[in-house]
Amino acid sequence: MSAVWSISKKELVSYFTSPIAYIVIAIFILLSGFFFYSLVWWFNTQAMQMAQNPYYFQQVNINQMVFAPLFHNLSIILLLMLPVVSMRLFSEEKKMGTEELLFTSPVSVIQIILGKYLAALVVLLAMLVLSAIPTIFTFIHGNPEPVPYLLGYLGLFLLGAAFLALGLFWSALTENQIVSAVLTFGTLLLFWVLSWAAYSARGLWQDVLNYLSFFEHFDGMTKGILDTSDLVYYLSFAFFGLFLTHSVIQFRRWR
C-alpha cells in the first residue's frame, strides 16, 4: 500500500508542477460556473412566470431544472477534458525512459497502475469539489433536495473514474501523449454515440447498446435514484480498464 501511495505522490507532484492540472481544473471551474449561472438565470425567469399560475408553481423544482441539466453538461465537459489528465500517465514514463526504473524496482505492476490511477482520481476530485463551491449557495438561498444533488456528483465522479481508467489503458499503449489523448477521446465519443444508436435499435440490441452507453447509467443518479446496476457498470468499467492496462504492460514485456 505504501508503494501505491509513493507512486501517487510522485504523480501528483508531476501534475501540480506542470501547468496541466491547473489549466484543466481552471477551465473546468470556469465552464461549470458559466453553465450553473445561465441555468440559474433561466430557472429564475421560468419560476417568475410559473408563479402566476398555482398549478405550474408546484412543478418548479430546482433539482430538475438546474442540477440535472448542469450534471449532464459537466459530464460532457469531463469527456472532453479527462483525456488530457490521463494522457501522460504511462506515455511520459515510456518516453523519458523512467519506465525502466519503475519496472526494475521491487514494486508490482499492479501497485504502479493503482498509484497512477489514484493520482488521476485526486485531480478529478479536485475538479469536482472546486466546481461545486458556487452551487452550495442554492442551499443557502433555496431548498434543493440534497440526495439527487449528492448522487449527481457521485455519478460524475464514477463517470470520470471510468473515463480515466480507459485513458490509463491508452497511455500504456503509446509513448506519444497526443496519440494517447486522441485515442481516449475517440473511444469515449464512441461510447457516447452508442446511446444515440440505441434510439433507433430494437429489442435486444436496444438493451445492449443502452447498457453500454455511459450516460444511460448517469441519468438515474441525477434524478436521485441509486441503482446498483449503475454502480456495477461504472465500477466494472473502471476495473476492466485497469485490467486491460495491466495486460498491455505485461504483454509488451513478455512478447
Binding site: 510522485k10 508542477t17 523519458m96 526504473l101
Partner: peptide
C-alpha cells in the same frame, strides 16, 4: 541497483 542507458530522471523533481 540499476542505471539504464537513458538515465531515468523526473525533470520536475
Amino acid at each position: 541497483g540499476y542505471l539504464p542507458e537513458t538515465v531515468p530522471l523526473y525533470p520536475e523533481m
